[in-house]
């Protein structure tokens, strides 16, 4: 049905929608703008009002959201709409239509009564809460839940903490659906980081080519040129890493995705820090949006549990090898 669509087609649409969202007054208005552009349901099947497209189409949308600091739980909506389609199609449809705002509490388990890192949960009607057994429950933010706005580190998609007064009740997602949802979110987070990295590099290079110090442009100084070149390598590495991870590499799709995410979670914020340095005193001000990108990427790193994923990669590295050239060395641990 959508065979003629290309991922790049969504980039321009997404950038325009994100720009429009920046001028919208409320989260509900942003939901409508994003839904009208067809962005919320891009991954969800068409019988739920989605487009049924692959992650390759989700990435440019998430990247545009990062670039424009979209104030909406976009990643959560996109992956939830797909996950819920076979379980609760009406809810999936409502998410695609933007009539229900939902979030995901990325930290903690509902079994413990407190979960956190739920972007914009204080404005969400539904929040997905993970359980210790691998499943998850979509709970309504009504009487059984109190939502505390966490200290607002991420200014654009602030996180909230949820306190559950009873074991979570609601639509249940199986452990398999949850695993897929988490994997899809890793791709989208990486794409948001790529968008932020591009924006930060753009702000730095524009400023450096305008600001004159010691009688010459900042961009005439090799130290700053090389700093920005290194930041450009980060952007290109994220781009090529996404391209590879999305084409189901022959060797280890999981490793390709997780390694990319772990690296993005470290390298992305470093580009924002670098851009702040290029802008000097201006970079340190509230009005220049570099700190918002930095906050956004740092929050995402924790939502995506980058450090924990890196520990998992460490376990894999320290494990036995499938490289037959080294398979015959005796294991004495």
């Amino acid at each position: 049905m959508y065979d003629d669509l290309k991922p790049a087609d969504f980039e321009a649409t997404a950038l325009m929608a994100v720009e429009a969202c920046a001028k919208a007054g409320t989260t509900a208005e942003r939901a409508q703008l994003l839904a009208e552009a067809g962005l919320l349901g891009v991954l969800a099947p068409d019988d739920c009002g989605g487009l049924g497209l692959s992650m390759r189409f989700g990435v440019p949308i998430a990247s545009a959201a990062g670039k424009g600091l979209l104030a909406y739980p976009l990643i959560e909506t996109m992956v939830l709409a797909r996950a819920l389609a076979g379980v609760a199609p009406d809810m999936a449809t409502a998410l695609c239509e933007g009539s229900v705002i939902a979030s995901i509490a990325w930290a903690g388990f509902g079994d413990d009564g407190v979960v956190g890192r739920a972007p914009l949960a204080h404005e969400a009607a539904q929040v997905l809460v993970f359980l210790a057994d691998g499943r998850a429950v979509l709970v309504a933010t009504d009487d059984q839940v109190s939502v505390d706005a966490a200290p607002e580190f991420d200014l654009d998609v602030p996180e909230a903490t949820l306190r559950l007064s009873a074991p979570p009740q609601g639509i249940v997602l199986s452990a398999a659906l949850v695993a897929t949802l988490k994997a899809e979110a890793q791709f989208l987070r990486t794409a948001v980081v790529l968008g932020s990295v591009s924006a930060c590099l753009g702000l730095a290079s524009d400023y450096a080519q305008d600001r004159v110090q010691f009688g010459k442009l900042l961009s005439a100084n090799q130290a700053l040129r090389h700093r920005m070149s290194r930041d450009a390598v980060v952007a290109e590495t994220l781009r090529s890493g996404l391209a590879r991870a999305l084409t189901a590499p022959r060797e280890g799709a999981g490793m390709a995705r997780d390694a990319l995410w772990c690296w993005a979670a470290q390298a992305g914020p470093s580009v924002a820090e670098s851009a702040i340095q290029v802008l000097g005193g201006m970079g340190f001000t509230w009005d220049v949006p570099l700190h918002r990108h930095l906050r956004r990427m740092r929050a995402l790193a924790h939502q995506g549990a980058a450090r924990e994923r890196l520990d998992e990669i460490a376990d894999a590295v320290l494990g036995s090898t499938d490289n037959e050239w080294y398979g015959d060395i005796a294991d004495a641990r």
Binding site: E236, S240, L242, P249, A256, A259, L260, C262, W263, I313
Partner: peptide
């Protein structure tokens, strides 16, 4: 080796990203 686990994981991620550079080109 184990005392350097996290650094080894960082190296492993970079190797994976280098594959991305090569295959994309």
């Amino acid at each position: 080796l184990k005392s350097h686990a996290r650094e080894l994981a960082e190296i492993r991620t970079e190797i994976e990203l280098l594959k991305g550079h090569v295959e994309t080109l």
